[in-house]
Nucleic acid binder design. Sequence first.
RNA 1: GGUGCGAUAGCCAAGCGGUUAGGCACAGGUCUGCAAAACCUCGUAGAGCGGUUCGACUCCGCUUCGCACCUCCA
Length: 473
Amino acid sequence: MTALHFYNSLTRRQEPFHAINPGKVGMYTCGPTVYNFAHIGNFRAYVFEDILRRTLEFAGNKVTQVMNLTDVDDKTIRGAKAGGLALNAFTRPYIEAFFTDLAALNIEPAEVYPPATGHIPEMIALIEALFEKGLAYRSDDGSVYFSISKFPGYGKLAHIDPSQLRSGVRIDQDEYDKEAFADFALWKAWDENDGDVAWDSPWGRGRPGWHLECSAMAIKYLGESFDIHTGGIDNLFPHHENEIAQAEGATGKPFVKTWLHCAHLQVDGQKMSKSLGNFHTLRDLLGKGWKGREIRYVLLGAHYRQPLNFTFEALQAARTALGRIDECFSALEALAGSAVALPGEAPAFAGEALERFAAALADDLNTPEALSALFSLVKTANIALAENILMPAGASAALDAFRRMDSVLGVIAFERPRAENIPEAVLALLGQRGQARADRQWQESDRIRDLLLEMGWVVRDGKDGQTVKKAGR
RNA sequence: GGUGCGAUAGCCAAGCGGUUAGGCACAGGUCUGCAAAACCUCGUAGAGCGGUUCGACUCCGCUUCGCACCUCCA
């Protein structure tokens, strides 16, 4: 396929992608803070990262993805305290829920999900390295800070001039004991709000700063320099900027080659927030009867660097569109039967659509364009089917193209409605109706059709007789 | 205030200096006893004002409006 190109937040340009070790890609993804159920805005980022991962695999790479779990920070500590629970007892259900949710969206698992609380020694070692380089200092209360004025490259990702950082931002400096306003905590000294959440360190009891975990765990699992780091756009500053400062400050090597950031999801044109009542968790939507594949499809509908407006109209549109894909796929399956595609027999339209699809993804993960290519395959296949010009081998080749596309999109085979087992009673009624139709007893035929509908089965009269389908979806 | 992004037909949403994006909805048609379903067909839209150009939705400038980040929200 065409060479992959990604927009790199660091250079602010679209660049050809070359893995440091050809064929093997190391990728770090900022994961959830496990103090609550993740919402669909969070999942936009995880689905985007899944598309990135699958596109890399589509292009023949072996991907090693690391996604951290932030299981210690202000919010988790606050939640544990409010619930009267130990920290890990508080976070565990949310970690489990997170994995359930990932599966519900057909997101491929990462290779490693390191929890912050499991990597305190690595973080302490990183702070020690920063002390050696003169980039860290200890304050009177025992906290440790990173001195951004001593790190020349600070601001290169966010393109921020550190000396400008103060303007317009509220200042509550007395909460901390820092030398410079923009310095950030590497280690936070224990205070009474932390309860029993504390680890020993050379600087006394306390807990790691939030930015530290990602640098420490990324280096541990992916090395001091690796290919790709992703996250939501909101993490670009300060979190990712600080990650670079910590990692490059300690190792002296370039931390990450390519940074990719996903734009936010909006709901009904506005930022998602609890006060506006437009805050949706994944489980809320599943509870309302929407399928994971439908939500996933909606999230693929816009380019990842553009804000995406989430609406229930979009979910309904996704349901209808997926239904069309399913119909086409099933019709091809029926025609293909057990036929195996032979070389040279693939219809040209399947290859063309797949090529367009691959080019769209290679062009900075253009999923809307990729979906357009998918639908061009649906349409041409439908026409070929209607005109009876498709041989079983051709149908099989078209199916292969769909499957290749779905290896990235993950919406066709996933949760595809299956042919239901038809109960005896329904079969019996169908038989009666068939007889009535043969006898041109339309009233009787319609009566049975209504009866079946009441039982939850929709009758479709086609060229080859009647078929039934579960109602509702 | 600083930095960045955007404004596309009823809705959602892409590419592109001149050649059909696509999806949903609407409308027509095929099929059908009727209906449903399915399938096909169908939209010259590009915030406003200037400029560059043979030609601009696409490049440049200004205006208006919207969004995001600016110390721990994906």
